[in-house]
Amino acid sequence: MIDWGGRHGAVSRREADKVLGRRLVLEGLANGVLTQPWRGVVVHAADSLKLTTRAQAALLVVGQPAALSGATALALHGISAVDDTSIHVTVPFARRIKSKPRLIVHQADFQPSDVVELDGLGTFSLDLALAGFLCDGDKRTAFAALDEAMRGLAPDHVRTLRANVRDRVVDRRDRRGIHRALMLLDLATGKADSPPESIVRLIVVEAGFPIPEVQYEITTIDGRTLYVLDMAWPSRRIALEYDGFASHEGRHDYDSERDSRMAGRGWITIRVSAADLREPRRFLAELSRAFERRGVA
């Protein structure tokens, strides 16, 4: 494999011709060793699915000033909730750059201080990337990404991130989506164990149910933790558990026994599967019946 100088396997076509010679580049493209994700840039075919390679290629195509943004920036910051194979790049309003297949170009003015280097790639800071995605990204994915960004942070760091993102949202020149973003900011806790759990909580709140407590502990009489519920309404003794495939495969008997023990304590437990995220009517109806049983219509 040709060493492109440590830039994630992507170089401009001009530089590839200079390093290899035009004939070898053409041979590499013909035999599939090299590929051109977009005109003017060449990457090793073996690296063509890597996020950093595609991101570097996009920056080469777009030119400077530009920064990786949106879902691409969040993924580079380590946010797993986003799943977008397109590369998102933001350029200043003064630049007229058209989007290409799988390369989405956004326009917004930004300062050099808004850009951080991640693996040598100019990328929007986490707070700025979150603010933009909360306003114009998929709502469920945006909320899950925000929750994930907060996960594991100390309480004061959560407050700082929330405040920084809020300031970014309020300061946006594009006012679309600001109300939605602020609502999601208020709802996020950073306590969900996974992006699907965040999405379940958003679905529940948008359906009109009270905001549930997250990671609610059930303890023994002497204070030892017995269970930790994904979501709960303790005053009504209603619990909502998300059964991710990986974490609950082969655990049906254990979960059933746990639900029975919780029922003995007066709790109603409702389980949510991955399929329910796509069509939530079943578990929302079950949740509604649970609230009715507790005397809350």
Rank of each mutant, 00 (worst) to 15 (best):
A66V: 12
L51M: 06
R54W: 04
S48K: 09
A57W: 01
R54S: 07
P65Y: 12
P37H: 08
S69K: 01
A45L: 08
A58P: 05
S48C: 00
S69F: 04
V62I: 09
A55W: 01
Q36C: 12
L74H: 01
L60F: 08
G63F: 10
L49A: 13
R54D: 04
P37C: 12
S69P: 00
Q64K: 09
L76D: 01
V43K: 04
H77G: 09
V41T: 13
L60A: 09
G63E: 13
A46Q: 09
A57G: 11
A58Q: 12
Q64Y: 08
Q64E: 15
L60W: 03
S69Q: 07
Q64C: 04
I79S: 11
T72H: 07
Q64H: 13
I79N: 04
V42Y: 01
G40W: 07
H44W: 11
A46F: 04
S48H: 11
Q36P: 08
A75T: 02
L49I: 04
G78R: 02
R39V: 10
L59G: 05
A45T: 15
Q56T: 14
V61F: 00
A57T: 07
H77N: 08
S69W: 05
Q36W: 00
A55S: 12
L74S: 07
L51Q: 06
L76M: 07
A45S: 14
G63P: 06
K50W: 05
Q36R: 13
V61H: 14
Q56E: 15
P65F: 08
S48Q: 07
K50N: 10
T53F: 05
S48M: 08
G40F: 06
P37R: 03
A58C: 05
Q64R: 14
R54Q: 00
V62Q: 00
L68K: 03
T53M: 12
A75G: 12
L68N: 11
Q56M: 15
T53H: 06
L51R: 14
W38P: 10
S69M: 05
A58M: 06
I79L: 09
L76A: 11
W38T: 12
L68V: 02
L49S: 15
S48A: 15
L68P: 00
V42Q: 04
H77K: 00
K50E: 13
L74Y: 08
L49H: 14
D47Y: 07
L49C: 11
H77R: 13
G70D: 09
S69E: 03
A73V: 03
L76S: 05
T52L: 13
P65T: 14
I79E: 06
L76E: 08
L51E: 13
V42C: 03
A73Y: 01
A57N: 09
A57V: 09
A58T: 09
I79F: 04
V42R: 01
V43S: 06
A55P: 02
R39G: 14
A46K: 14
P65L: 15
A67G: 13
A46G: 09
L51S: 09
G70P: 01
L76F: 02
S48T: 12
Q36G: 10
R39H: 14
